[in-house]
């Protein structure tokens, strides 16, 4: 009788331990995706700087912005590889490998942050840089899923929805948003209720 009791307690303890491991794994993967989202955000920021300095006449600033953007993207590539390793390790239950991959992901995030805002302008290997510039020529337009499809989208606009009224729409959104209220209920990006407490 006593042995059975001990066995039951042991089984419950094992179930709790397994459950705890699964929780850590899910939370880690979610956290890793959050880090990836942050690095993608840095990539956006690097492009924003490029757009801002282009045409200012400050060639050094343009070169610096391009080099920083290339370095951020290089770090992003590293981060994506680390995440893939982490996911694979987690799926196989290899906790140590998953931790090592997470460390690589965090290192890539630090590298991206340094590339974007660090005091030193990052050095980019010429071959990597050339490949990156070449890749730019093939991104952003149709087929990249960015929601921007160049002339086709222009063609889809009705004549009545003129250019300035479109911008007015954007501007109205901005005015409505200053209070951060009113129409904020149904966005997937803002919906935290999917995680029940």
């Amino acid at each position: 009788m006593r042995r059975q009791h001990v066995l039951k307690v042991g089984l419950v303890a094992m179930a709790v331990a397994v459950s705890a491991f699964v929780q850590v794994r899910a939370a880690d993967l979610a956290g890793a995706n959050e880090v990836l989202a942050e690095i993608e955000g840095m990539s956006v920021e690097a492009r924003t700087v490029m757009a801002q300095v282009a045409g200012t006449g400050d060639d050094a600033a343009v070169v610096e912005a391009v080099r920083r953007a290339a370095a951020v993207d290089a770090a992003l590539d590293q981060a994506k590889r680390a995440y893939a390793d982490m996911e694979k390790a987690a799926n196989n239950g290899e906790e140590e490998a998953a931790s090592a991959a997470k460390a690589k992901l965090d290192a890539a995030a630090a590298k991206a942050k340094d590339a974007l805002k660090g005091d030193a302008v990052p050095e980019v290997d010429p071959q990597t840089f050339e490949a990156w510039v070449e890749s730019l020529k093939h991104t952003g337009g149709e087929g990249n899923g960015a929601g921007f499809s160049g002339p086709n989208m222009y063609d889809q606009l009705s004549e009545s929805e003129g250019f300035r009224s479109l911008f007015q729409k954007v501007f109205d959104n901005f005015q409505g948003a200053t209070a951060y209220g009113g129409t904020l209920g149904n966005s997937p990006a803002g919906d935290l209720d999917a995680t029940p407490e």
Binding site: A30, E40, V44, L136, G140, A146
Partner: peptide, 28 residues
């Protein structure tokens, strides 16, 4: 250069949102 940067920024921003969706899905 500026136009290309905007288009790339749009693409990267969309990928950031996809990452967020994964965060939410995993936690959900």
């Amino acid at each position: 250069i500026a136009g290309m940067s905007v288009r790339d920024a749009l693409a990267a921003s969309k990928r950031a949102r996809e990452n967020y969706e994964r965060v939410k899905r995993i936690l959900f």
